[in-house]
Simulated scan of single mutants.
Amino acid sequence: MTEPGSAEIRVLVVDDHPVFRLGMSALLGSLAGVTVVGDAEDAEAAHAAVDAHRPDVVLMDLHLGEDSGIEATRDVVRRHPDVAVLVITMQEDDESVVASIRAGARGYLLKGASPDEVERALRAVANGEMILGPKVAARAMAAVTSGRTAARVPFPELTDREREVLDLVARGYDNTTISRRLVLSPKTVRNHVANVLNKIGAPDRSAAIVVAREGGLGAD
């Protein structure tokens, strides 16, 4: 990880929108002491880029096509504990903030952040600090002062897509119906179901339905 006073912060930009990746890379590349070592559009490409370039900071969107940025964050932090993840997203709900921090992100910004806010957050997480953007911090403070707690995300070990699939399984839909509803191929649905069973520790589909309903999924 880059230490305070070091000459360079190496950054990887992960987002499924090419225009955003280009714009953010250009902004970061214009900052003193910051080098953009690459970009990626999905979780698989992000993991390969982190392995290849070992950046100090990964800027991570939460929605990467069918992939979950929260799951990608968890995997990056697990595989490379010295890499700081700074989430930058359109999502400002409490659940996304909590899930990101639990996954290991060191910062959380909204995409409407100013260039100065992005630079400040980048340098903070590179130096081992935790930082929330102004709007996110205001929401967090409001939640604390009002005595509220963020709603629990059911099955946080699942990606957003896997949680959708499990919800439909819990509703009693078969794979063919799920594939039509989510506009996915039957093979992709089968893979998602297999991953879900493994992650939640269910031996079969019937057991998964029970676990899912106990966790609050599958309700009409």
Rank of each mutant, 00 (worst) to 15 (best):
M141L: 15
T2G: 02
A140D: 02
P18G: 04
V169W: 04
L184C: 08
D42F: 14
A207P: 00
E71S: 14
G172A: 11
P115Y: 03
V189A: 05
G65V: 08
D16H: 03
R10S: 04
L22W: 03
D51G: 14
R139F: 06
G147L: 04
A121K: 09
L31C: 15
P203M: 11
T159D: 06
P156N: 14
P186R: 13
L59H: 05
L64V: 00
R190D: 13
V36L: 02
D160W: 03
Y173N: 14
T176R: 08
V211D: 01
A126G: 09
G133Y: 05
D116F: 01
A202L: 00
S185H: 10
G38V: 11
R123C: 07
G38E: 13
P154H: 15
R163F: 09
V34T: 11
R181C: 02
V169A: 03
M1E: 12
L158F: 05
I209R: 12
G104W: 06
L64Q: 02
E157F: 00
P154F: 06
V118F: 07
G112N: 11
P81Y: 10
D16R: 05
E3Y: 12
V211C: 02
P18Y: 00
T89W: 10
A208D: 01
L182P: 02
V57G: 01
G147T: 00
R74T: 06
A49W: 02
V118C: 05
S30E: 15
L31M: 14
D67Q: 06
L132H: 15
P134T: 13
H192M: 09
V210M: 05
S100E: 06
A121T: 13
A121D: 09
L62K: 05
A32G: 11
V193E: 12
D174K: 07
V58Q: 03
I70N: 01
G112K: 12
S96E: 07
P186E: 12
A126F: 01
R181V: 07
A202F: 01
A207I: 00
A43S: 15
R120D: 14
L22K: 12
K187A: 12
D220W: 06
L31V: 10
